[in-house]
Simulated assay, not measured.
Amino acid sequence: MYTKILRVTDISHVLFKTNPPITLINAKGMVPTTRWTDGQLVPYIYVTSPKDGYVDFDFVALPPRGHAERVETEITAHWEGVLPDWAQGIRIHASEGPVEYDLSSGGTIVDRDIKIAGGEIPWPLNMFA
């Protein structure tokens, strides 16, 4: 069962100037033992947009089965998709609390002519990161 990681240590993003614009979010964090796998950023689903303009994600991963060394270990996760128009930042939640990242504070902008067939890019975006 997926479990929130211990803490978020780094967040970055890449904005692909496609139509619609696609955002790749990269996150790093720490887990309490070795052998955690499959880090994922799981977006919250909103009925109405939040007043602060931040899109929330849970940073989760699969904890180890069986023996694991009790040493904090780094884990990564990525999410790619179209952020809502109201998005000003992202907030990634972990067990020790959330970390906020302002989308206007940096990031990489990729201004490429990427053709989208049928609304889907036929390769993973993280190959450009």
Score class of each variant (00 low, 15 high):
Tyr54Val: 07
Gly106Ser: 07
Gly118Arg: 00
Gln40Phe: 04
Ser105Tyr: 05
Ala68Arg: 01
Phe57Tyr: 14
Asp111Ala: 13
Val71His: 02
Val82Cys: 06
Ile116Asp: 02
Gln88Lys: 15
Glu72Ala: 08
Ile116Glu: 05
Arg91Met: 13
Trp86Met: 10
Trp86Glu: 10
Ile45Glu: 15
Ile92Asn: 03
Glu74Pro: 12
Ala87Trp: 09
Arg70Ile: 06
Gly89Phe: 13
Ile75Arg: 04
Asp56Cys: 11
Leu62Gln: 01
Val47Asp: 15
Gly118Ile: 05
Pro64Gln: 04
Gly39Asn: 07
Val110Ile: 15
Ile90Cys: 06
Arg112Ala: 14
Val99Ile: 14
Pro50Ser: 05
Val110Lys: 10
Val55Pro: 01
Thr108Asp: 08
Ile92Glu: 04
Arg70Phe: 06
Pro84Ile: 07
Pro64Arg: 01
Ala61Trp: 01
Ala61Val: 02
Ile114Val: 14
Asp58Ala: 10
Asp56Val: 07
Asp111Asn: 15
His78Val: 09
Gln40His: 04
Ala61Gly: 09
Leu41Cys: 05
His93Glu: 12
Gly81Val: 02
Ala77Gln: 02
Ala77Ile: 04
Ser105Thr: 12
Ile75His: 02
Thr73Arg: 03
Tyr46Arg: 10
Ala61Ser: 12
His67Ile: 04
Leu62Met: 03
Glu96Gly: 01
Tyr44Val: 10
Ile121Cys: 08
Arg70Trp: 02
Ser95Phe: 11
His93Leu: 14
Pro50Cys: 12
Glu80Val: 03
Ala77Glu: 04
Gly118Phe: 00
Tyr101Thr: 13
Tyr54Asp: 04
Gly39Ile: 01
Glu80Met: 01
Lys115Tyr: 11
Val99Trp: 05
Glu69Asp: 06
Pro43Ala: 12
Ser49Asp: 14
Thr73Cys: 08
Ile90Asp: 03
Thr76Asn: 14
Trp79Asp: 02
Tyr54Lys: 11
Arg65His: 11
Pro84Asn: 03
Leu41Trp: 01
Phe57His: 09
Ile90Pro: 00
Pro63Ile: 05
Gln88Tyr: 09
Glu120Ile: 14
Gln88Thr: 13
Val60His: 02
Glu120Trp: 06
Pro84Asp: 12
Trp79Gln: 00
Phe57Leu: 11
Asp102Gln: 11
Ala117Asp: 06
Asp58Thr: 06
Pro84Arg: 05
Ile92Lys: 06
Lys51Trp: 06
Tyr101Val: 13
Val71Gln: 01
